[in-house]
């Protein structure tokens, strides 16, 4: 089973890296970038008997390691 996990900063959390990337894009002539937030993507190959079990397992992975839920949200897609 293939899964993709997205980890993104919660709204309102300062993202100086995103801001710097946004400024660089503006400097390159890409106008109209009103905002940019940097996040992470994890592609995970998982042995699991069914999607429910996989989701439970991925959710635990996110809570315990992949995301810091003080500042980050996560979402899980299963292919």
């Amino acid at each position: 089973m293939k899964a993709r996990v997205f980890v993104t900063l919660k709204p309102g959390v300062l993202d100086p890296q995103g801001a710097a990337i946004g400024a660089a894009l503006g400097g390159m002539g890409f106008d109209g970038v009103a905002g940019i937030r940097q996040g992470k993507v994890f592609d995970i190959e998982l042995d699991a008997p069914d999607e429910t079990t996989a989701r439970e397992s991925l959710d635990a992975m996110c809570r315990r390691l992949l995301a810091n839920t003080v500042i980050e949200d996560y979402s899980i897609e299963i292919a």
């Binding site: 300062l14 100086p16 890296q17 710097a20 810091n68 003080v70 500042i71």
Partner: peptide, 16 residues
Amino acid sequence: IEAGLLPGVLMRNATL
């Protein structure tokens, strides 16, 4: 902090 012994979070320096 990551181990949960202290609260909050330490992020990339605001100056980068």
